[in-house]
């Protein structure tokens, strides 16, 4: 049995709460916890990148020849399909990683950790910022893997190493709106399977009805129309400009502007639902 030192002196400190922690320290605490959880789940982390890798390898091998013709219709230097596809796969891994954000939240709600964190003195914004940053760190790692693999398969990144880092940033900016979406799904369904299914159902149509796998000009009219409303197109176009064209800032920034606007809208909705869940349904 313990000597009870762990509980000694509690009564004498009645009006003297534990020292407060700074905002950034609180972000760091939560960032560490979510990274630790990711490391403990190598299958989830690896599993979420395997499908994009399969896409990258199979699409370049199977469609490479046919697609090269489509992507080299216009004027300008000819490019290989791998270079064309790599930015799309970067956006795909960002999308998949963002989808797991809501799954983590549901898991936390089911394990009671959500409430445990809410009853702690940590600021709620710091709690969610730490979790989101851990997810962004994962995207950085996964995008790096895709870029390295892409280069090994013959892709050429026109903007070089600095461009690769910028592409990573594009993936992160792209991911946030879907992070917001998946957290809203998590809070609405409060169920892991529903959250996973919702993310999966939406993932493939979004990818195919966009500029991801073929140039928009090569797609049927109705898909062209929809793809212009599809966030994937803006993420892919920004990343692809950096791979294929070079430092074409006007293209990159124009697409990023759309993504940032989307991030703000979905982020605001997610914050609204998170606040509602945090303060519970009491009038």
């Amino acid at each position: 049995m313990s000597d009870g030192t762990a509980v000694e002196g509690a009564a004498t400190r009645a009006r003297e709460p534990a020292a407060g922690t700074g905002f950034l320290a609180e972000v760091w605490i939560n960032f560490k916890r979510w990274n630790l959880k990711a490391i403990r789940n190598p299958f989830v982390v690896a599993g979420s990148i395997i499908q994009p890798i399969i896409f990258l390898v199979l699409f370049t091998q199977v469609f490479g020849g046919v697609a090269s013709a489509a992507i080299n219709q216009g004027p300008g230097p000819s490019i290989n399909y791998t270079s064309f596809l790599v930015p799309a796969i970067v956006i795909q891994v960002s999308l998949v990683a963002a989808a797991t954000s809501g799954i983590g939240l549901v898991n936390d709600i089911e394990e009671g950790m959500f409430e445990k964190v809410l009853v702690s003195p940590m600021r709620r914004t710091a709690v969610f910022a730490g979790k989101t940053l851990a997810e962004l760190a994962r995207i950085a790692v996964q995008v790096t893997i895709i870029l390295v693999l892409g280069v090994l398969l013959g892709a050429h990144i026109a903007t070089g190493l600095l461009g690769a880092i910028t592409i990573m940033a594009v993936g992160m900016v792209f991911s946030l709106w879907f992070t917001g979406f998946s957290n809203v799904m998590a809070l609405l369904t409060r169920d892991q399977e529903s959250t996973i299914i919702a993310a999966n159902i939406i993932q493939f149509p979004l990818l195919f009805v966009s500029s991801a796998f073929l140039p928009i000009a090569a797609l049927p009219d109705w898909i062209q129309t929809i793809s212009k409303l599809n966030p994937i197109t803006y993420g892919v176009d920004a990343a692809r400009a950096l791979v294929v064209q070079g430092w074409v800032w006007h293209v990159v920034l124009r697409n990023l502007a759309v993504l940032v606007a989307l991030d703000l809208v979905f982020g605001a909705v997610a914050v609204y639902f998170l606040n509602r869940a945090s303060s519970a349904a009491v009038e």
Binding site: A14, G20, E115, K116, S120
Partner: peptide, 18 residues
């Protein structure tokens, strides 16, 4: 208040992966 209380919820609340 949160700093000065300990709370054990009805449902066991631990991070099972840690």
């Amino acid at each position: 208040v949160r700093r000065s209380v300990g709370y054990m919820a009805q449902e066991t609340s631990v991070d099972l992966e840690l």
